[in-house]
Design a protein around this nucleic acid. Structure first.
Length: 256
DNA sequence: ATGGCTTAGTTCCTAAGA
């Protein structure tokens, strides 16, 4: 079972690239982030024609998450996180596919920091931790897949110096992510590549892709039961180099 | 030291991203 996290940076602009990816890789589940699409304009027909059922939680202009499943319709469990009723950002969609709980997560970027956007990021991590703990206590296979906007370790970035003032690398961001992991989650990519040096994002600017100046912020977190079933994990890096690519590459884990 | 690129939207500039 190949489960993918893919920040598409606009589902409309990325649709040809996404359909190409589905056709070539035939992943079983794809968690999408940054749809930048309202619910009404989500390209359901094109995705269904490619052989995938879908659930989506859209928002006009920015944010937006979805879960696609090959030859199946994901079952909805929850959209949004508790704890901040006035929060209207579409950043969390929890589903079940083939007996596995799978959530698509788009954690706030938090720049500029310090400031209200960074405070929101930290609160959102707290809210995610509350939900994640409840999922662990249910003792099911769970995959929390998404763009976490956290560079967890110094070897997860091409240049610590270049990013040291960024919200993605602040001690508070890292502490939030590590406290989440410490509940008992397995960072699939970190398990596969314990020495780092693996990127999932390359900026559009300053020739970042050509210089391989990237970092790892797209993560797949596995509950203990899911971690026991892990076979492999990786990044489908070549898709970042294609025409009209997203600035993120599809990041994946396979489970028995 | 700076700026650079892409997407979307009250669209020919601005916000947001990371």
């Amino acid at each position: 079972m190949k489960i993918v996290s893919y920040n598409v940076n606009g589902i409309k602009a990325r649709l040809p690239r996404l359909l190409e990816y589905l056709g070539e890789q035939q992943p079983d589940v794809v968690c999408l982030q940054e749809l930048k699409s309202s619910d009404e304009t989500f390209p359901e027909a094109d995705i269904r024609a490619a052989g995938y059922g879908a659930l989506w939680h859209g928002q006009k202009g920015f944010n937006g998450v979805a879960v696609l499943a090959r030859g199946a319709d994901p079952i909805e469990r929850q959209r949004g996180l508790a704890g901040e009723p006035e929060d209207e950002h579409s950043r969390y969609l929890e589903t079940e596919v083939g007996g596995v709980v799978i959530a698509s997560i788009y954690l706030p970027n938090g720049n500029p920091q310090p400031g209200p956007k960074f405070d929101y990021k930290l609160r959102w991590i707290d809210r995610l931790r509350t939900r994640a703990l409840a999922l662990l206590e249910a003792e099911q296979p769970v995959v929390l897949a998404g763009d976490y906007n956290v560079i967890a370790n110094d070897d997860d970035v091409y240049s610590v110096r270049a990013m040291q003032e960024d919200a993605l690398m602040q001690p508070e961001s890292r502490a939030g992510y590590r406290t989440l992991l410490a509940q008992g989650w397995t960072d699939a990519l970190r398990t596969r590549f314990p020495n780092g040096g693996v990127w999932t994002f390359w900026d559009y600017q300053a020739g970042a892709w050509q210089r391989d100046a990237g970092f790892r912020i797209d993560h797949l977190l596995l509950s203990p039961i899911a971690a026991d079933r892990m076979v492999d994990a990786g990044v489908d890096k070549e898709y970042r180099g294609r025409e009209k690519a997203s600035d993120h590459a599809p990041t994946w884990v396979t489970l028995r």
